[in-house]
C-alpha cells in the first residue's frame, strides 16, 4: 500500500510539472507566438473569447502567481479554452472525439508488441544459440533502426499504393457513419492493421532483447538450478520459474514503453492521416492553435501517467516482495 501511495504521489508531481511547463512555455519563450495566433485568427472571435484566451496563454497584466492560480483552477475544472482551428469547439471536446482512435491504435500495437516480443525473448533465452536466438535479434534490431515514420511510409507505399491491400488514410472510410455495426468495425479494423503493424515491427525488437537479457540473467539464478534439480518439466521451469521472474522488469518497461508508443503513434498517425491525438497535435502546431496544443499535451501526459499507475498496481500483484511492504 505504501508503495502505491508513493507512486501516486510521484505521478501527481509529474502531472503538476507538465501543467507548470504548459503554463510557463507561452509566457517565457522568446518571440510572441500568441500574438501571431491572434493575428491569424482575428475577426472570427468574440471579444470575451479573445480575453479568455489571452489569460490562458499569458497575455495578461496580472501578477504571475495570480495567473498561475487561475491557470491551475482552469485545468482542474477541465476548462482548457476553445480550439482556434476548430473554432469555437472547446478543446476538451476536440480531444474527446479523437483520443479513442489513439488508444485503439497505440493500445493494440503496444499489447501485440509486448506480448509477442516477450514470448520471443523467453524462447530465445531458453534456447541459447538456437534459430530464434541467432536470427531474430539482429533482424529486429535492424528493423528497429528505421525511423517509425519511414517504415510507415514504406509500408503505405508498398501495401497501399502499389499492392492496394490497405486503405491509404484515415481510421475508416469517408462517409461511413461510426456505429457498432459489423460493417463499421470491419472497416475500422482494415484501417488499423497497417499502422499498428508498423509500430509493432519497430518496437518488438526492444521487448524481445530486453526480455532475452533478463531471462539470461534469471536463468543463472540459483532457484532455476534448483527447479531443474527438482526434475520439473521444462515448460514449467521456463514459465513459472524463469519467465515469471524475468517478467518483472518487463512490466516496468511496459509503462515506459507507453510514452514511446504514444510518440510512435504520433508519427504513424501523421503518415496515415489517422485521426488520433497525435495527428491532431501536429495540425494544432501547424495551425498555431496553442490552446489545443496544450490541451493535447496535457491529455497525452495524463494518459501516460495513468497507464503507468495501473502498471504499478499490476506490479504489486505480481511481486510478493513489494506487496508485503
Amino acid at each position: 500500500m505504501r508503495f502505491i501511495l508513493r507512486r501516486l504521489g510521484f505521478y501527481l508531481i509529474a502531472f503538476w510539472v507538465s501543467i507548470t511547463l504548459n503554463f510557463l512555455l507561452p509566457r517565457f519563450m522568446p518571440g510572441d507566438p500568441v500574438s501571431r495566433m491572434f493575428a491569424r485568427s482575428a475577426g472570427q472571435m468574440q471579444p470575451e473569447q479573445i480575453e479568455a484566451l489571452r489569460k490562458l496563454l499569458g497575455v495578461d497584466s496580472r501578477p504571475i502567481w495570480e495567473q498561475y492560480a487561475d491557470y491551475l483552477h482552469n485545468i482542474v475544472t477541465g476548462n482548457m479554452g476553445v480550439s482556434i482551428t476548430r473554432f469555437p469547439t472547446p478543446v476538451t471536446e476536440v480531444i474527446a472525439s479523437q483520443i479513442g482512435w489513439t488508444l485503439l491504435l497505440g493500445g493494440t500495437a503496444l499489447v501485440i508488441a509486448a506480448v509477442v516480443g516477450n514470448l520471443l525473448g523467453i524462447l530465445a533465452a531458453w534456447r541459447r544459440g538456437g534459430a530464434i536466438d541467432s536470427a531474430l535479434p539482429p533482424l529486429l534490431v535492424f528493423i528497429g533502426s528505421f525511423p517509425y515514420f519511414w517504415l510507415a511510409m514504406g509500408a503505405l507505399y508498398l501495401f497501399g499504393v502499389i499492392l492496394g491491400w490497405s486503405p491509404l488514410r484515415h481510421a475508416f472510410t469517408d462517409g461511413l457513419e461510426p456505429a457498432f455495426s459489423w460493417e463499421f468495425i470491419g472497416d475500422a479494423g482494415a484501417h488499423l492493421v497497417l499502422p499498428a503493424l508498423t509500430i509493432v515491427l519497430v518496437s518488438i525488437g526492444g521487448w524481445m532483447l530486453g526480455m532475452r537479457n533478463t531471462m539470461i540473467a534469471t536463468n543463472a539464478e540459483d532457484y532455476i538450478t534448483m527447479a531443474e534439480a527438482k526434475g520439473l518439466k521444462p515448460g514449467r521451469i521456463m514459465f513459472r520459474y524463469a519467465a515469471r521472474n524475468a517478467m518483472l522488469p518487463s512490466v516496468t518497461s511496459f509503462g515506459m514503453g507507453l510514452g514511446f508508443v504514444v510518440g510512435g503513434a504520433l508519427l504513424t498517425e501523421v503518415v496515415f492521416a489517422y485521426p488520433g491525438v497525435g495527428y491532431q497535435l501536429l495540425n494544432a502546431v501547424q495551425g498555431l492553435d496553442y490552446p489545443l496544443m496544450q490541451g493535447l499535451f496535457l491529455t497525452i501526459t495524463a494518459a501516460v501517467l495513468l497507464a503507468n499507475f495501473l502498471v504499478d498496481i499490476l506490479y504489486v500483484r505480481l511481486d510478493p516482495r513489494v506487496r508485503a511492504s
Binding site: 526434475g231 513459472r240 515469471r244 518483472l248 505480481l318
Partner: peptide, 25 residues
Amino acid sequence: ELRRFRWQDVAMVFQSAMNSLNPVL
C-alpha cells in the same frame, strides 16, 4: 529419464539454499 532421476533418486540442498527458492511462488 534424467528428469525422473532428479529428486526421486538424488536430491540436493544447494550451497546457496537461501537463494534457491523462487521469490514469486
